[in-house]
């Protein structure tokens, strides 16, 4: 009876009504990937969102399935690097960092040097690479800041580097200069408290 109830619960989880937006063939394949990921202890929500993104963008079913499978595999790789205790947001950010070219060893090192959530640190690493910074420089910068910087400091660091790049600075040089300036470490002492106005991405 308990087994039947658990199976029923699993079925409820699998029959996510949002996936009804996919065509039947694509839906069946996506459900199979999501189910496998769930059984492996990986978060299902990023996979569902990737499938929904694909269908909203009118992507072919085969491409959606490929994207979801690739993401499931990368979530597994991120968990291997970050450890079983990694949260779903950390795994998603870990995927972004790995896809940006960060070695898995960098993720493991970040885990050991930063006590708080790694989500922002990993995201900033990936975002810096998207801005043109080399993966090595981005990883070195985040590793240097991660032990003591707050999430808000990391976001401000990323914005400062992006501003410098927009003004013409070479991306990796802008990154190292900003890290060495120490401005983002010093800002830790003053806690700004919760934001009073909506933030910007």
């Amino acid at each position: 009876m308990i087994v039947a109830a658990l199976l029923m619960a699993m079925q409820v989880a699998i029959q996510d009504p949002r996936l009804d937006r996919l065509d039947p063939d694509t839906r069946a394949q996506v459900i199979a990937v999501v189910d496998s990921a769930r059984q492996a202890g990986l978060p299902a929500e990023p996979l569902i969102q990737r499938a929904l993104e694909g269908t909203t963008k009118a992507a072919p079913g085969a491409r959606i399935v490929t994207a979801v499978r690739r993401l499931a595999a990368d979530l597994g790789a991120a968990r291997t690097a970050l450890g079983n205790s990694a949260s779903a947001p950390e795994l998603e950010a870990g995927v972004a960092a790995l896809r940006a070219g960060a070695p898995s060893q960098v993720l493991a090192t970040l885990r050991s040097v930063r006590r708080s959530s790694l989500t922002m640190a990993l995201s900033v690493l990936a975002d810096l690479v998207a801005s043109g910074v080399s993966a090595d420089s981005a990883a070195a910068a985040v590793l240097a800041l991660a032990p003591t910087a707050r999430d808000a400091d990391l976001v401000e660091f990323r914005r400062a580097v992006e501003r410098d790049i927009a003004l013409g600075a070479p991306p990796s040089a802008a990154t190292s200069v900003r890290v060495n300036s120490g401005a983002f470490v010093n800002s830790m002492s003053s806690d700004p408290g919760p934001p009073t106005r909506p933030r910007r991405p």
Partner: peptide, 9 residues
């Protein structure tokens, strides 16, 4: 992409 930090940020 937008990232929202976790607790302790």
């Amino acid at each position: 992409v937008v990232t929202v930090g976790g607790k302790g940020s």
